[in-house]
Design a protein around this nucleic acid. Structure first.
Lengths: 121, 121, 121, 121
DNA sequence: GTGGTCTAGACCACT
DNA sequence: GTGGTCTAGACCACG
């Protein structure tokens, strides 16, 4: 489990943590059932407040990525591979849609955008 | 000149205005030298505070999209076609890079992403 | 808008607040679009920390009961009457199911339970 | 004697055990004088800590559902049928009262609630 | 030792 | 003045 925070980034720290954990769960890098390190440990290692870590964990729990068992810790929630794939596709599609909207408002054609995408990948 | 605000959107209202004006300047929909409507008119039509409109205008002036001539209003700044294209490319490139980073962290290949992009355009 | 907290209750304060607001939104006592008092005011009047109030508000926003607009306040979310009714029915049904499960495990018949319910209403 | 625990449930494990034993005593499924299996057996079969089982047993003893005889184990306490019925009624009444409060705050009438109850039983 | 809740402050961006 | 985020503690229930 690799985590890092960039305090200079404009996105809130708890959001950065959320994204990293969620990505790793969706990509399979964190397998269902795996125990996460205690909140206090994460807080100490990253140099952020426990409450900040908890905010991230709270959202991850609410959104079904983690489950918490008081007294024993937090764990990756059991999610089927198919539902993981479906969520990944959905997230990616909305990101693509946002890019397309940007491109259109800047007057860029589909082929220009595709070419640019292939260059930068 | 078409402007609209979505108060339910999480992005600040002044930022929404900024993005719309900047896009129209870059795409050529707003030609250099064209006069913008007075701040108080924009404020009234969109139902937002004059201060909010002013914030957007301030940033647009600071970033070189607009120029203000005291007593006569704000105008689209004189920007050459080549420098407009260069900025457009730069903005689009960073948007593409963000998407590529997303895709990579979700374990999506270049060809899958390109296909998805063509579908959604 | 009437709110109260019972610190002796075992349910967390932020949960008590959540339930009260959600109920009032669902019953129509709080109409869509209505502005809520500022978090600081609620905090002061109830004698609880701002963070506790914010926890409640956060969940209400996440669950679609409220919307927040930075700089201007929190408002009751626009929810149609039909979707309110559907949620009410759903909540009530699960509460009834819990009661029925209790009754069955205690060996109480349907008629006995109904009679008791009519008495206590 | 059937026991089970759901670690994903938000209610504490020891509380889940308590509720199951108490229900079975009140409904007569566990007759007064009957011996309970040793704590270590329950612990092993359910995959929970002995301390957790012990906590449940402690509360059951404190509340008069069980009695412990050092050296021979725990037994269902001698409770008269009439006092069992009285407790059952009391527990059920408070559950009904909670449901009624819910229903009232959601603006549901007595007849609507009764009908729903009959449907779901 | 673990997570769950709460307090009393603080600074920032937005309106 | 409003909400959004963050800090540095604290106490409790649970396992």
């Amino acid at each position: 489990m690799r985590l890092s925070v960039n305090p200079n980034d404009k996105t809130p720290i708890y959001r950065q943590l959320y994204e990293q954990i969620a990505s790793q769960v969706l990509s399979g890098a964190l397998q269902p059932g795996k125990a996460l390190p205690p909140i206090r440990a994460v807080s100490r290692e990253l140099g952020v407040s426990m409450i900040t870590v908890r905010s991230a964990w709270d959202e991850l729990i609410r959104d079904g990525y983690l489950v918490s068992r008081t007294g024993s810790g937090c764990f990756v929630a059991p999610i089927s591979q198919t539902s993981r794939d479906s969520i990944r596709l959905q997230k990616l599609t909305s990101a693509v849609d946002a890019l397309v909207a940007d491109a259109k408002s800047l007057g860029v054609t589909k082929d220009q955008l595709c070419e640019l995408l292939r260059e930068r990948f």
